[in-house]
Nucleic acid binder design. Structure first.
Lengths: 347, 347
DNA sequence: ATTTAGCACTCGAGTGTTTTAAGTGCTAAA
DNA sequence: TTTAGCACTTAAAACACTCGAGTGCTAAAT
């Protein structure tokens, strides 16, 4: 299923013009703007054939053509030229990604940066199969204890529990042992359950202190589950969203965990996955494209960063931005990981 | 400037009907729906007078009336009946506000809850005149140190700094002393500057470790400045925002720190402040109303919680919700504060 | 002095019709 | 194989018209 050179040029021009203008592209525009050395009639004949072959669509008979899902797919796979990021974007990314904070902070920073650079909503999902490796509890004062959770993948989270009663060091050590015994190896997604079990079992022995510690951990973990996406309002810039009803549906959709999960599910096996329009299994996503990138540190998968936009999104820029971020991010987290592992061994 | 009973009833009915329906209210609707024992002609005469006195406005000659800013103001000050929150809302609030996390977490929870209950954007602003009281640095492992910042108002923040090099306990103690010397009494808003000064001055002595600690603090503090508002998308439910352009302007406005600051500035002296439409100094806010509440713990002001919506917002429900939250919040933070102070004294 | 019925008037919103312009597909010639 | 030319289609813009909600005023009724 290969196209001749002229058709390739036409298809790629239609895609690129439509991405830029959001208006159906006509034969005349194509000849004038993209310097095709043929008359508009020739282009028209080719466009008709491209439509018959399923690469283009016509909103109505007297309009120009827009790319079909198949058209976008052919463009992305065969025609699209990778483009270098602009210096402005590179600078912005480098200046904004500080690398401070814990994994979730960094994920959030990345999502913010991506949504700014690409003017598109960005979704992050954490890898919940990561497991607890070690828990430390440090007393800061009589009524404040710090809890540090380290995961197998080398990420660190911490929280402070405020206690109503003072607690002896010995008791605290005992609690720390119990937490480590019970939680080591627990996947993050099951942490909530495991914590509840501890409380149920040990409440009589440790009274409220253990409960306060456990609740602090529970809250800290639930915080990350909540914040999923950045820059949702960027979608308003697209003419596709000039209708408030569409906007509401989109926001609703992107806030529904199940839909996002299903969307990202299909990209399981690929580092960089591009799902265009009706290729999405989820019907509600059929007008959108989802581009996602696995974020990992070494061989350890930490999560996924996804950009969701109208089918008419800028594939070239999105992909090169994600790739750039990927390198950047790998480096940043790679460093952190190394440090954390050292810290881990040292106790 | 008092109105007779019938006019009061008319004004209050117009306001309430308009808040509910977003449509200009006509004399006939008023008679039928609000059981005014007069003919529509009588109501019409009164409405005309209310318009002449500035309480009502007429979008065009053959439409009903809508309240003017003065009309809303009179309603809020004299006619509005406080209403009890529904059990559903009370339950939702009580179940959602966990009270865990640091001040910023709690502020964010409150903003989320309020925006859910009221279906309106909610803005939080922290009181930056709070000052640093004490800093603790705890070594967790060779490469991880925990930094705990306690403020005068009794709030706690913490962050973890990952170090590239190991650091001796003695050196760390020295650094802690320096941090305390230099930062105690520093208002949070000047913290950034003060931290930069430390680095500039002491970098040669402590090499990168101090810088890593300082940068972690800087990042942790900047995180709170960023997240300002919750539930912005709720605004889409209002028919006032059926035009995407209006939505964009609103989002833009609410994301502009200066505008929000100026809006909240005028409520400086009041615990609960209500600013309606053109009462706002900021011209861009003239179509909106801002209701804000001081959040304090004892006599210490922690920040402000504000609801921003169209002039046609539900004043009664908003105010009673904020009042309810205020009690709730005071209690929650009151508790924390007590704990923190104890912890503080104990060292 | 108030209140109300009645009526002429205004204007936005909705509906149907016409015009315009962009773009096509096809035919016949190059 | 390409292209000029032309008839055809259609969405969107422009316009004209109707309808109805709601008004303000006047004159009569209470």
């Amino acid at each position: 299923m290969s196209l001749d050179e002229r058709k390739k040029k036409i298809l790629s021009s239609v895609v690129e013009d439509y991405i830029e203008s959001a208006e159906p592209v006509g034969s005349k525009t194509l000849v004038e703007k993209y310097h095709l050395d043929y008359s508009s009639a020739t282009i028209r004949n080719d466009m008709k054939e491209l439509e018959e072959e399923g690469y283009l669509e016509q909103p109505h008979v007297s309009a120009g053509r827009i790319p079909s899902t198949k058209g976008y797919r052919y463009y992305v796979d065969n025609l699209m030229k990778e483009r270098k990021l602009s210096m402005v974007d590179i600078d912005y990314i480098n200046n904004t990604l500080s690398g401070y904070g814990d994994v979730d902070d960094i994920f959030e920073q990345v999502a913010d940066v991506v949504s700014k650079v690409l003017s598109t909503p960005t979704v992050i999902t954490r890898n919940n199969s990561d497991t607890i490796e070690n828990i430390k509890v440090v007393k800061i004062s009589d009524n404040l204890v710090l809890i540090v959770l380290m995961s197998k993948n080398g990420t660190v989270k911490d929280c402070i529990a405020k206690l109503t009663d003072t607690v002896e060091d010995k008791v605290l050590d005992k609690m720390t042992d119990i937490l480590n015994q019970d939680l080591t190896g627990t996947p993050l997604q099951e942490l909530h359950l495991a914590l509840n079990n501890i409380i149920k079992r040990d409440l009589e022995n440790f009274s409220v202190v253990m409960e306060e510690i456990v609740n602090s951990i529970k809250y800290e973990m639930s915080k990350n589950m909540k914040k999923l996406n950045s820059g949702v309002e960027k979608i308003l810039e697209n003419p596709e969203f000039s209708d408030v009803e569409t906007v509401k549906n989109f926001i609703n959709m992107i806030s529904t965990k199940e839909i996002i999960d299903s969307a990202l599910d299909s990209s399981k096996d690929n580092k960089l996955s591009i799902v265009i329009g009706s290729e999405n299994k989820e019907v509600l996503l059929n007008d959108y494209s989802v581009i996602s990138l696995d974020i990992s540190s070494g061989d350890k998968k930490l999560g996924k960063l996804s950009v969701i936009g109208p089918k008419r999104m800028n594939y070239a820029k999105t992909i090169s931005t994600l790739k750039y971020i990927n390198d950047k991010f790998n480096n940043a987290l790679g460093l952190n990981k190394e440090k954390v592992e050292k810290g881990d061994n040292s106790e």
